[in-house]
Amino acid sequence: MTLIPRSLPLTNDPQVVQALAARWHRTRTLLLLSAGVLPIAIGVVCIVLAGMTSAGQRIMPWWSAIPAAAAAACAWALLSWLRRNGLSDPRSWLPATTLMTGAQLVLGVLPGSGIALRLSPGAAIAVKALCAAGVLGAGSASALARMAHRSLLATPVLELGSTAFPLVLTGGGTRVVIGTDRVDWTTRGGSRVDTGVSFARVHRVTAQANAILLHTASGSWTVPVPDPATASALLRRRIEWWEERRNAAAEREERRYLDLVGLLAAVSGEATRGGVGVTVDSNGVTTGITLSPAVRDLDPEVLAAQLMACAHKARSDARRQVQDLVLDHASAKASH
């Protein structure tokens, strides 16, 4: 499984993928180096340091492997986070990489170097070189993570509006964050003001001389931005993308509901007992009764009791089928 997809994630538009292909290729390379190659290299440094502690000793102390295990765990945690949900928020690449590589230094490289120097004083130069390599790797990982974020989002282009990446526009004391379902902004004109509005409330976006206007049902919001034309175009593109996703989700939900209705209509509970058979629909209404020749000699009261027992069992069977279908529908909805 590829750690980072080769094509642009978080979008299904082939035109957007093609337009941002070169930008994503650079970002992917930097991200692989910062969150993959360098943290793994730091873990290897810690493993080598742990191996050096066994030089000249019959048995390597078990506690000398703790720094290497901690560094490897940090590298694994960073890669797992990046694969699961880290790609959706480029702003977190730098802090996450800095945190994990810093933890590798504190928990792995520095203790491992100290242990190696204590148990293998003759290899002091090699230990110091490995320690320096670990520190350099951690610093380089943070720098590359910052470069990956800037390579992808530092220069906003219109196609980024059709992705799920948060877009940040700054300038003139204003910071605007265009998310996946809302836009938030912070202004610092004497005092700090944090405001936001969801896309569902925005009716129209227009550009003015030094700001964009967000027209909503409750009034208009003026958001100062350094480049109103670019900001309004990006915001309109992101709102269109959000509406397309919302409509697609509604269509999928409608199809799933119609499928569920069809499956429920086909539910049929059945039960047989002593030559008596009863079938019911999903509502528990009896749809059929079958009687074998063996019931001709039965007492009417006994026959009625068997019919009632079969009807009760058939309704229980129908309820079980309905519950299974509804639970399957709910689980499928939650997975999406």
Rank of each mutant, 00 (worst) to 15 (best):
T272C: 08
R273G: 03
I178D: 01
P5M: 09
A249K: 15
V197W: 12
R238T: 02
R28Q: 09
Q306M: 15
L235F: 07
S140W: 05
G137E: 04
A231V: 06
A271P: 00
L167V: 03
T170M: 01
V285H: 00
L153I: 14
A211I: 06
G189F: 13
M308Y: 00
P61T: 13
R255N: 07
T53C: 14
W93K: 05
L152I: 14
A77C: 07
T290I: 05
I125S: 10
G284C: 04
L158P: 02
K313V: 01
G134T: 11
V48N: 08
P39C: 11
A77R: 12
V157E: 10
A233I: 07
D13P: 08
A309C: 02
A41W: 14
G139P: 01
G51C: 08
L119P: 00
R319K: 13
L153E: 10
R6E: 15
S198Y: 07
T170E: 09
A129V: 14
A248Q: 03
L94Q: 15
T206E: 13
L79D: 10
T163I: 07
V322N: 00
T195C: 10
T222C: 00
P300R: 15
L117C: 02
L10R: 00
S120A: 08
A123H: 02
I66N: 02
W185R: 03
T53L: 07
A311G: 05
A132H: 01
P228D: 05
G196M: 04
S316A: 07
M52Y: 04
R320K: 07
N247M: 12
Q57E: 14
V45A: 05
L110M: 08
L79Q: 15
G36L: 03
E253R: 15
K128E: 04
W241M: 08
I66S: 06
A133L: 14
S220G: 09
H336G: 01
R319T: 05
A209C: 07
S218H: 13
S218E: 15
L298Y: 08
A116E: 06
T11M: 09
P67A: 14
A75E: 11
L78I: 03
R255Q: 14
P111E: 11
F165K: 02
T272G: 07
R319A: 08
L153W: 11
I115C: 01
R182C: 01
K333Q: 09
A75T: 10
G102T: 09
A145Q: 13
V276N: 02
L213W: 10
G171F: 01
V157L: 12
A314I: 00
W241P: 00
E244V: 07
R256S: 14
D194T: 02
T101K: 03
